[in-house]
Structures are given as C-alpha cells and as structure tokens.
Nucleic acid binder design. Structure first.
Lengths: 340, 340
DNA sequence: ACTGGCACTCGCTACAGTCGAGTGCCAGGA
DNA sequence: TCCTGGCACTCGACTGTAGCGAGTGCCAGT
C-alpha cells in the first residue's frame, strides 16, 4: 500500500496529538504543531488514504480524525520511539521498592507504584505456584485430628490449608510425617510434585499410611491441581480520568472485568518469555474490555519468569511511556526477588 | 416538633419510593401508591413541614421531594421495619459458605456474597491480628543466616516475615528457639505478647541471646506494633448502577477512597460490640465519601468480635434490606469461624 | 506532486416556545 | 381545628430553529 514515510509521520502525529489532547485532530492543527513541511491540504490527502486503509477514522463528517485500534497497532509496532524513563521515575521506582518486608509487601508496593507512574489501572500477579519450588512444608497440629499444612515456596509465597485427619495422630508421628514430606519434596518444582507425592504415600510406614494419604490428596488438590493464583490491583480511580470520553461513558463493563481473576490472569499472565505484550482494543478476547488496552510483561528473578504484571487503560493511552514503565518495574521487581 | 404519625408515614413513603424509583417523589404519586387515607393537598402540607425540619428537600422548585441525609437517618432509626431475608437469600448464604478451604477462601467468598446480595460494594476485614491469639510460631531455615518466621493465629490468619539473623545459627539451635518461643507465646493474645517477648529475650540461654533478640524485635515490630490489617473488596461495578445519578456523576472520589485501606478500616472496623452501624452521607468523616452510606457490623466466633464487614453504596440505598443482609452474613461467618 | 481556494457538511451552542409535573396558598366544609 | 378541592404559579425537560465554525473534499493552478 502507499504508506510512504510522510503518511506514517502523519499517523504518528495524529496518535501523539490525540493521546495528549483527547480531541479529534484536524489537518490544520497538525501542521502547526509538527514540522511536517507540507500544507494542510497535503495532509488532508494523506489522511484520506490513511482512513481508507483503516488506520484512522472520523467520529463524524467535519470532525478531525481519531486513530483506530489498527492505527494504534501500527503506531506501536513501527512508529513509536522508545521513551526513556525520566530520572525522577527511576528514583521513584528505586525508592518505592526498598524496605519491603515480605512478598505481600513487594506486590502491594509494586502495584501501587505502577498505578502511580502510568496513571492507569495496574495489575500484578503473585508469583505463580506452578512456577515455584517447594522450600519447606510445615505441619502444625491444631487439634488431635486437625493439622494445618503450610507450604513455603522459594518465590516467597506461603499457602496454608486446614487438613481434617482420618483419626488422631500423636505428636511424634507428626514429626515423622514432616520429615518424610520435606525430604521428598524440598526443592521440587510444584509442577513436578505429583509423582513424588504418590511415592510418599507408597513408601510411608504402615502406621502413617492413612494420614499420609489424606495429606497427599490435600497437597495435590489444593497446591498443584487448582493452582491458586493471586492478583493485586490498584489505580481503578484512574479509569475516571478523561471524563466520560474514554470507555464511551460507562465504566461498568471495565469494573466488572477487573473483578474476575480469570480475566486478569489471561490478560497479564501467560506471556511469552521476556517480551512486552500490548493488546489494543478489540484484540483482546473479552467483550467487556474492547474499549481498553493492556500493556503487560513477565517478571521473575534472573531470566526466569514467575508471574506477570501490567497496566490497563483506554486505547487512547501513552503506549511508549507505559511500555517503558512496565518493563522497568518488572526488571526491578525481578532483581528484588533474586535477592531473596 | 410536630412530627405526628402521619408525617412520619409520609417520610417513610418518600424514602421507600425514592429508593426504588430513584426519582423525586410528588404528593400525588405518593397517595396513589400508599394507603395514606388523605388527599395530596394534605400530604403537601406535611411535606412542607418535613422540609422545614430538614428531613426532605426539593432538588428545585416544582420537582418532587428527595430525602436528606437527616431524613434517611430518621428513617433508619425510627421508621424502617425489619425486612426478613427471603428464603432464597438464606439458601444463597448457606450454599456460598460451605466448602471454604481456608481463611482466604472464606473471606473472598464472603465479600463476593455480600456484593451479590446487596448489589453494593462489599468490604470484609480479615480477622484482626490484635484480636487474635497465637496458635503456633514456626521458624523455617532459609539459609544459615536467614529464617522465615511464620505465625499462625487462632483466627486462621497466617503471617510470615523474613528475618535476617546476626550470624549463622545451627539447626539444633533453631529447634530450641522454636520450642522456647512456642512455650512462651502459644495461646497468648497478640495484644498481650510484648511482655512475654521481652521475657523470652531475658530468659534465653546466652548462646541464643543475640538471635532471640533479633527475632523478638521482628515479632514485636511486624506482628504487634503495626498490626497488619487486611481487607477484601468486591462489587465496585455496582457503583455504576443508577447511571450517573448517584454520586453526582463522578465515581472518582469513591474509587479513590476505596483504595485506601485506612479509610476502609475506619469505616467498617472499630465497631461497637455486636451492633450494626449505619453511616449516612456526611455523617462519615471522609469528604470523598460524603455522597455514600455505609452499613457495617462486627463478626467473630461466638460473641467475640475479630473483624468487621459491611457494604457501601449511595445514600439512596435499601437500608432495611442491607442491614438485614449484613447482619445475616456476619452471623454465618461467625458460625463458620467458630467451627475451626 | 504540492498548494491555495472554495463550497459543503454537520456537530455544537444559544434561544425561544411549549408542556406538564409539582408546588403553595386559600377558601370552604366536616 | 384539620382536611380538601381548586387554582395560579414555577421551572425543568423537551423541541425546533438558526448561526457559527472547525474541518473536510475537490479542483484548478503552479
């Protein structure tokens, strides 16, 4: 297609102006604010082509142009120049993440930081159990027939389950069970535990067999099969910026989608290694979010990825800025996790 | 003042109609829908008095009347009849809360249930550490100079902290420390632990003294002094019901307030024993929430209270219904906690 | 291939007019 | 004394009209 350099420059200018002013941009204003070196009439011709190709559209005749989802896509893929973080932002990130006392704290600080820097809704997935390894499993007697099973993962996550035992178990047996379980499972990746757990049951001394069977089923069911994912959210108030223009005036569907963990996980989890993913408007699979865009990436200590994080906002968002911020925050969080 | 029975009945009718229709209610519509036994003109006179007393107001001349915050207050205090839960609601509550596997699960189910039943924003405070007792304290070695301290409370809460030790500590010492700590602190209320922790340090064998001192300071600082409160939230999408009429068109301040844990705790925590608290409009102390009302109560096993829960919505809400639901849910959650 | 000029479109705003729900007040009646 | 029907009045909501102006598409000229 005839998308020469100048037409691309026009598209870029339209996106940049529309993102910052939130108003349809006309040919005259364009040449005034950008050094395009041509007259408004020429720009109009280019705009006509861009519109024909589906990159921009007119809300109505005799209004300026607005980028379409497709236009944003082209912008993100080929036109946006990387926007380096400001020193102030760098400092904010560093300051924000020091002094976190535990994983909860890290995640909460991170999600607030992201929301604050990008002025969008921020989402952070806790390190996924599926990608964690067992650091320690603890059995805490609650009563003679009840145990609390506490699993501590290398990523810092701590999960606990109340286990109803088939019969009373003396304290010494608990000690034995604890030792057996830890010998077998310590340092194993959670995704690889099922055969180990199976072996635990088979190798257990006869006396401990029934209890071990119960423990094993709880272990498998709650910690492995339905791997509990957790999510933190912040900055929903940012959805109301831009008045009622974004999201065509109704926050309803967005807020509903944000309450569904499954939706959020689909959006920010499952990301390919170390790339930043950008979903624009109807590119994402949820009808409720067809007016929104998502910028997300994975994070983790070193080069491994244990979870995802990202931001969600109107399609009219500052993609270069948000991409840079999301990447930077993910990198810092990864470093933080690597220290532990 | 001259608030005879009929005037009160008129106020009640106004509140009920306005809550259900969301439109200013006029004298004619009132007598049609309620059996007041008098003519519109009489009702108009009563309305004039009610307005003079500040219980209702006119959005503008020649519009119907709308209750003021003061009007809602009178309604809640003296006029609302208890609204029994429907069997369907009872069943929903029971169904919703069975099968919860741990505290997180209970809290999440509860908050979603509340949001669904009341169609408002629901808030549930996790059992407060300050009102919990220690069930068990576990020390998990992470490396030679690092321990993870895990506290399990009788309310089901589990808190963990990474502790940086002053020097390497052999495994046997960890066992000793664990025993000492648990002997001293098990079953103690967290609010009463400081002197016990102090004693722990003083009574510790010389070899363990430095490590115990570190542990003690972490214990005191993170578990007692700044008692970590946690909160779950659901149903924010309900804020968008009623179009832009409630909250004078801007959800902004509400969403901002909902992101502040401190605010939420003030709203639903700190409640007097076993009463249901209703905060109407500007009765609450936060400017951001002066267009909202909160119905909250405490919950806990038996008659003790370990946390709060409640709902938040527009002042124009179904107070009797929400009060009944909040109470019922709190009672069920209490029973659930008592079982553990 | 670009530019200046020009006619045209159409949303936005302001203004005037109508409609009707709802009110306050008053005189008359139980 | 309290209630009622009647009546004039208020004022927001809605409708229709007109003028404005930003922005466009097209075309002839350089």
């Amino acid at each position: 297609m005839g998308l020469d350099d100048r037409k691309l420059a026009v598209l870029r200018a339209i996106v940049e102006d529309y993102v910052s002013t939130q108003e349809p941009v006309g040919s005259k204003a364009l040449v005034e604010r950008h050094q395009l070196g041509v007259s408004p009439a020429t720009v109009r011709n280019d705009m006509a082509v861009l519109e024909e190709e589906g990159y921009i559209r007119q809300p109505h005749t005799s209004a300026g142009r607005v980028p379409t989802d497709r236009g944003y896509r082209l912008f993100v893929d080929r036109l946006s120049r990387v926007k380096p973080l400001s020193p102030a932002e760098r400092r904010a990130i560093e300051r924000f993440l020091v002094g976190a006392v535990d994983l909860d704290d890290v995640v909460h600080r991170t999600v607030r930081l992201l929301a604050q820097l990008t002025r969008q809704v921020a989402v952070v997935q806790y390190p996924s159990l599926a990608r964690s390894s067992v650091r320690h499993l603890e059995l805490v007697p609650i009563s003679t027939t009840r145990l609390m099973l506490v699993m501590i993962a290398d990523t810092g996550r701590v999960e606990q389950r109340l286990v109803e035992l088939p019969g009373p178990v003396p304290a010494d047996d608990v000690t034995d069970l604890r030792r057996l379980i830890n010998e077998k499972l310590a340092n194993a990746r959670l995704s690889e535990t099922p055969p180990l757990v199976q072996a635990l049951v088979e190798e257990a001394p006869t006396g401990l067999r029934p209890t071990m069977t119960t423990l094993a089923s709880v272990l498998l069911e709650t910690l492995v099969e339905r791997h509990e994912e957790r999510i933190a959210l912040a900055g929903t108030a940012n959805l109301t910026r831009g008045g009622l223009l974004d999201f065509q005036g109704s926050l309803r569907p967005i807020l509903e989608a944000l309450e569904e963990e499954v939706v959020l996980l689909k959006l920010i989890g499952e990301t390919e290694p170390s790339t930043t993913r950008v979903l624009i408007g109807d590119e994402n699979e949820f009808d409720n979010l067809r007016a929104a865009s998502v910028v997300s990436t994975g994070y983790g200590p070193g080069t491994t990825i244990v979870g995802g994080l990202g931001v969600l906002g109107p399609t009219r968002m500052d993609y270069p800025g948000n991409i840079a911020t999301v990447r930077a925050v993910a990198r810092y969080v990864g470093e933080l996790l690597a220290q532990n």
